[in-house]
């Protein structure tokens, strides 16, 4: 059993938890992920590591309440336990030698982009952070990003905070103005990463995208997380989760991510109906 030692709501749909998992905390690195189960008959869901404290033995996860499992996880409070928490899985982000990097995060993906930005900052790299959200009330981790970025750019789709527009707007401006990054690292919704990669491809800037496909075991066994990268089949869990964004078949990844859309809708509705009953 793994104890939830802290819980914080970052916005109405995004929650941060610190989980006591000393073995995982000892080894975790930016870019890696964990798989957890919320209850004994629960499904296994992958979540990217949002932070860790090696001394306290805790791993931070940040998740959006999107389906039945994340909803049940969000119902747990500090002091309670979850039965399974396994990791660190996947390969860590390659940060060695990077001096000037643009980190582009979208929505809850910012939670995963943050440890990357932090690690880069700690190794003395010049970090530009571009973060995007649908609207002001969904903004998370603004201060944390500012603290590790030499340049920070806040975008909202509806213009309710920062600049109006998507993350590609400032990115394109910078590249157009002759800004040269060693690398762009993007983490967020598939559709956002697809357009970030299309933007940087025009300027020939190496771009890494962090993928979070459907998977079960996270150790290479199920093949459910397969992606096409550079025309070859890759397993996100063991070959990734980060890949060269210019080589990823995003359209296929988006299609595959909706495999269980029907099931998830039903799960969510069941969970919501149960919730309704409880308040009645």
């Amino acid at each position: 059993m793994y104890q939830i030692v802290a819980k914080k709501s970052l916005n109405p749909t995004v929650t941060q938890m610190e989980i006591l998992a000393p073995f995982v905390a000892k080894k975790a690195k930016a870019g890696q992920f964990v798989i957890l189960r919320v209850d004994e008959d629960g499904e296994r869901i992958p979540l990217t590591v949002a932070g860790y404290d090696r001394e306290k033995g805790t791993v931070t996860i940040i998740f959006q309440i999107v389906g039945g499992t994340t909803k049940r996880l969000n119902e747990k409070n500090a002091g309670e336990y979850i039965p399974d928490f396994v990791g660190p899985l996947g390969k860590p982000t390659h940060l060695e030698g990077l001096k000037k990097v643009c980190v582009v995060g979208g929505g809850v993906g910012c939670a995963i982009a943050l440890p990357v930005a932090k690690a880069l900052c700690e190794q003395g790299a010049e970090v530009t952070s571009i973060v995007g959200f649908r609207s002001k009330d969904l903004v998370i981790l603004e201060e944390e990003f500012k603290n590790c970025s030499s340049r920070f750019c806040m975008m909202t789709d509806d213009g309710s905070y920062g600049r109006a527009g998507n993350v590609c707007v400032p990115l394109k401006e910078m590249l157009e103005n002759g800004e040269r990054f060693d690398e762009v690292i993007t983490i967020g919704p598939l559709i956002m990463m697809k357009f970030v990669c299309l933007t940087t491809k025009e300027y020939g800037v190496k771009t890494i995208a962090s993928m979070n496909p459907i998977m079960i075991d996270g150790t290479g066994m199920c093949g459910g997380c397969r992606l096409t990268v550079g025309g070859k089949m890759k397993f996100a869990c063991v070959d990734g989760p980060e890949f060269d964004g210019h080589e990823i078949d995003f359209d296929e990844a988006m299609s595959r991510s909706r495999t269980y859309a029907d099931f998830e809708t039903r799960e969510r509705e069941t969970a919501c109906n149960l919730f309704k009953k409880e308040v009645e």
Binding site: I216, D217, C222, G224, R226, M233, D249, T259
Partner: peptide, 25 residues
């Protein structure tokens, strides 16, 4: 445990499983 695929077109369509994934589920 590492599943093999045939490397034929269409293996990434929705509805294609490795036996490992199908049985594990």
């Amino acid at each position: 445990g590492l599943p093999k695929f045939m490397n034929i077109p269409g293996e990434s369509l929705k509805g294609v499983y490795s036996a490992n994934e199908f049985l594990t589920r």
